[in-house]
Design a binder for these strands. Sequence first.
DNA 1: ATTCTCTTTTGCACAAATGCAAAAATCGCT
DNA 2: AGCGATTTTTGCATTTGTGCAAAAGAGAAT
Lengths: 300, 300
Amino acid sequence: MADLNDIAVFVKVAQYGSFSRAAHSLGMPVSTVSRKVTSLEEQLGVTLLQRTTRKLSLTAQGRAYFDQCSEPLAHLIDAEQALTETQKKPEGLLKISVPVILGQEIFYEFVSCFLKTYPDIQVDLFVTNLFLDLIAENIDLGIRFGELKDSSIVAQRLGKSVRYLVAAPDYLKGRALPSKPEDLREHQCVLLNGRNGDAEWHLVSGGKSVRQQVSGPVSSRDFDAVSAFTNRGHGIGLLPSTYCDDEIRRGALIRLLPDWSSEEIFVHAVYPTRRFLPARLQVFLDALKAWKSPLWLPLH
Amino acid sequence: MADLNDIAVFVKVAQYGSFSRAAHSLGMPVSTVSRKVTSLEEQLGVTLLQRTTRKLSLTAQGRAYFDQCSEPLAHLIDAEQALTETQKKPEGLLKISVPVILGQEIFYEFVSCFLKTYPDIQVDLFVTNLFLDLIAENIDLGIRFGELKDSSIVAQRLGKSVRYLVAAPDYLKGRALPSKPEDLREHQCVLLNGRNGDAEWHLVSGGKSVRQQVSGPVSSRDFDAVSAFTNRGHGIGLLPSTYCDDEIRRGALIRLLPDWSSEEIFVHAVYPTRRFLPARLQVFLDALKAWKSPLWLPLH
DNA sequence: ATTCTCTTTTGCACAAATGCAAAAATCGCT
DNA sequence: AGCGATTTTTGCATTTGTGCAAAAGAGAAT
């Protein structure tokens, strides 16, 4: 196969009818142009251009080759144009995978605002706790709570999250307050993603760390529901601080075992390792970092 | 503009879904393929392929670029294919320019034989004494008698030609034989391409050279006619040796001023400088050199 | 967990392409 | 015919790219 760059040079020379003008237009020395055309002719075994210092004319074969090559070349240039255009403007489809916890109004509101700001961007939102393979599924961005196992991805911390043990005064009425984690075994708990009414809560206090089995009458798949049931006195909930700080201040919820809390969980935005981020992803990341999310705490 | 070879490599990688298979198919090291794709991505500022050591997948932009590039690239390859095909087999149009002297049966017969040998070749024959610009007119081959002025052409000697002064016994009856070139002034001459019954003959003898004005009753545009009128006793003709040797031997013509003849004229095949001759031209040249032409003498 | 295997990337020595400057070539003009 | 102007080609030092071998990365199987 002939050198494609040489073909492009030949076509330019044929268009301009001159080595020097073609060279100027291509921004390369005339000598290079000359050699490239010569090299192309050698590779093809065909004389394409009949040249004297004054005249330049295509041979019959050169003409035929030129006719067949100029259009495909123009298309290749168009393709590049199209590509770098989309790279510049934030546009196109943005595939995002978020955990079920984010599947609620507050996040939808954020995405909605983002879409209004960038009308040329479409979002394809996957709300799932499955850890999708970003690369295989061609997903641009994932948001993940907790530890990351995936390799070949870039992670940026968006915020952190701490959960407190809380309960409504109604529930606590007539019950003994827990004084250590093991006491939770004797309480009703409002679970998140529980199985058969059971769950395991991971609690820390200073340097100490405990995994405590808990059970309770109700389990749900997002914090909105956990919050609702806890407020209604169905048991002790392990709620992100962002969900219960107000209630605690107002006295609507009581914080239990205040020395203990869930371990600090980091919220990450993850995306495939890329030397070049599409503009749509870049702007979404910026928006995400700027968002004062009620779902996590700022990092500092 | 991105490097076109890199685009071709990227397309191959996308088609095969693997760097190593693409490299094998392209006959280059995997490392080169890797670097070319990386370099293309850098030039475009876009990640085209998402790669791990186990999986390879196109990004959305990579897919779009691939779709736009693969067809034009295929066309470029086709163009090359088409070109080298025509180069291989002797076929196509052969434009030939010959002087009027060759516009006679003996040459037509030669061309006819050639055409029968190569049925895929068409010949476009220009019979003219004009020295056409081979390059501008896109003429493949010219046959020229005498000196060459044209530059930027290749000339191959086909043969040589010497003309003798001859006359029929009928004409000489009762006339004084010329003893020096100036005596021709007093004779009737059978002219070639004369103007108003006049012409200039260039004669040489050893180191001497003379230009002699002559005139006569008949002028024509080819040697067949000159030969015919000379044989019929209309005057002295200046005929190529190949036209009169037989008659001289038979006594049908008498050679005059046997120390003098026209200067030796070389017959050349000329064609535009080309590194690579089209097959049709190559075979025609070969045939021409192999032809025992009655219109010129062999070189040795 | 650890090893094995398959694929992509990187390091380094060598080969090839590049760009500047000078030379060669062609055609118009005197 | 010879000079002049313009254009293409060639020479050479430097930069750039290539190819082999080794390393790194990522799953899969033990």
